[in-house]
Amino acid sequence: MSWSLPILNRDRAARWTFGFAFFIFVYRLLTHSLVHQMQQPVLYETDFDYTYWLYHLTGVPRLLADNKFPAWAFDILLLFFTSYSWATSGRYRWAVLCCAIGWTLYGLIYNSYSHHHNASIIGVMVLPYAFLLQKERKFRLMWEGFRYFYLYIFTDAFIHKALIKHSLFFLPNGAEFIKTNQALFMVQHPDSLLTELYAWVITHPMVAYLGFLTMILLQGCMLIGFFTRKWDRWLFWIPILFHTMNLLFIDVFFYELLILNLTLLPLSRTSDDGK
């Protein structure tokens, strides 16, 4: 096909990354999940995740989330550094560093106090760190590393489902995923068109399984990215399709993770090769 994806350079990558982060901030604001909106939560979940254990050991989450003033200050500063890094294309390392640390802390705080270690926020927690590197060659290596990280997220899920737990070959799984995630919605909204759609898919388990199989195989396709970049223009669309189907059928919102889709766009060199 003649169309191609937009080409990034470092400046444009910074604009799009911090622009995306800005939209995540607005989305979080509208869904009452910024730190100052949490109303000083009391219970947290660290799971069996040593990063969270260490984080709560430092006392930082309590300091930020337990008091109104620090919580407001944190959110305002997060917005400021994100906007500033966007406006300056990530050229000021101190602003990028503050922005990156801010999003890391925010992700850990939200996941802790929402009792759900949501992987969708992981993209904005890590990607801004790439712009700490001023030299082109180092930046490109780091950016490439995040590309592999993104590919790993999908590939690992595929390997678990196909090779370790073999859930890929469990025929009822398609209907099971929809059933267990949408049961409450179906019971509470019996007249909704979506309920009719879910009921039809659940009562046609082969259709549900084929949908499930397609989604898992799409995850598996991301494995190709480890061997070549030439397919990135196609791989770029897989997460978008995957998350849209998840949103429609599984009641999971993963669009925030699409910030890492930027790493699948071609990256051109600037004139300075950073030597």
């Binding site: 995740d49 992987a119 992981i122 997220i153 899920a157 678990h160 489902k161 859930s167």
Partner: peptide, 22 residues
């Protein structure tokens, strides 16, 4: 099965279970 974020283990939704009630 102990994670160290951001080194996630993405296999959490890979169950093989048929539920009769919730």
């Amino acid at each position: 099965s102990c994670e160290v974020t951001p080194a996630l283990v993405m296999g959490m939704y890979a169950g093989r279970e048929q539920r009769s009630a919730d």
